[in-house]
Design a protein around this nucleic acid. Structure first.
Lengths: 196, 196
DNA sequence: CGCAAACATGAACCTCTATTCATGTTCCCA
DNA sequence: TGGGAACATGAATAGAGGTTCATGTTTGCG
């Protein structure tokens, strides 16, 4: 019932990481309820009971994975944006970074979406956190005159929604997605939409 | 196992509708796996076994609800768009109609989102169908010179994503949403983004 | 070394709920 | 209005899978 303490030995840390990685694939591929602990430990090449040394429940691994998605996406997007000369360039870089992230870790992306139902608080935290950072960026750009005045929060949510839908359609559902084209096309919309 | 035949008597039709409506609320509020058949029949003021006279499984009611969402949303949005003088006005009317629909039937909205995991084919059909109609509308508008040239499909998905995200944030998560303001703000983005 | 704490194992347990079914009740038309 | 088709009931069934635990094995420190 209690949250297990972090592992103390090298072996323990490796096992925990194995199980977490296996959970990402198994839950991402099959969904939360279809994925059984047995599936996860099998994919991690461990015994069933080992799972409960590192996680107190199925919900807890799931929660952990949502947090990981939060850390990773934000780091990825922030890194890509940092080099951009202005906000409109940042929009492009951020969108592309996001879509590439979805390409690399599709399971993690699906897990966050399923969190809406499995772990609603984590879902909300993930997106409101993201939206706050996004809004701040837009407000600062507005101050510098790089984008037209407007409600930064509404814009942030609208733009996040665009990115999500494009990820669904052109990354998850496409065998050979042409991310470049999608980014170009979407960015034209965004540029003109936000332009001063 | 087989799909039950449609009810033949008035009473039967009423019962089926009762159960379907109850399923909408119960599944929408608690999610697919947390919602039990017992919960649904209790909410419908019927016996447990009655459920299986009208539906062959929990998955089947769910599927039915996704189809209903498809029919209803599209009718709603199409109705709102019909009166619009041009495409940019249509975008506004469509977005507003969608957000009002989410306000009215939040449970149904959540069910479609959960379909991504519970009934992936239905989910895909729902959105690709919607996207096709949307793309066609944009292409026609482009032909009339009402919007700038561009990849209509990418645009359709981007705009659908905006609507979804705004629905999540400002309808489902807000006690007293100011739909008018959100629509205004988003529509400015869209107008400038699509303008010729 | 040697031993206490960490970690590993997988069969057994236990709960939960989707689905069935044997037994009534109601409907509707010939 | 009588009888067969439709519909209603809820206790019993059945299966799945999350979680526990008693029994080993490994690790790392003094």
């Amino acid at each position: 019932m209690d949250k297990p303490k972090p592992p103390k030995t090298k072996r323990g840390q490796a096992r925990r990481a194995q199980i977490l990685a296996a959970a990402e694939t198994v839950i991402g591929d099959n969904g939360f309820s279809a994925a059984s602990i047995a599936d996860i430990t099998r994919a991690a090449h461990t015994a069933l009971g080992t799972f409960y040394i590192y996680f107190s429940s199925k919900e807890e691994v799931f929660h952990e994975l949502v947090l990981e998605m939060g850390r990773t996406t934000r780091a990825q997007v922030a890194g890509a944006i940092a080099k951009a000369p202005d906000r409109l360039a940042a929009e492009r870089a951020g969108l592309e970074a996001f879509l590439r992230f979805v390409t690399d870790r599709p399971a993690l992306y699906r897990i966050v979406e399923e969190a809406r139902f499995v772990d609603p608080d984590a879902y909300r935290d993930y997106f409101t956190g993201f939206a706050e950072a996004y809004s701040t960026g837009l407000r600062e750009a507005e101050g510098r005159g790089e984008v037209s005045p407007g409600d930064a929060e509404v814009r942030a949510w609208a733009l996040m929604g665009m990115a999500k839908a494009l990820g669904d359609r052109y990354v998850l559902w496409e065998d050979a997605p042409d991310i470049g084209h999608v980014v170009d096309e979407a960015h034209r919309l965004i540029c003109k939409g936000l332009a001063p």
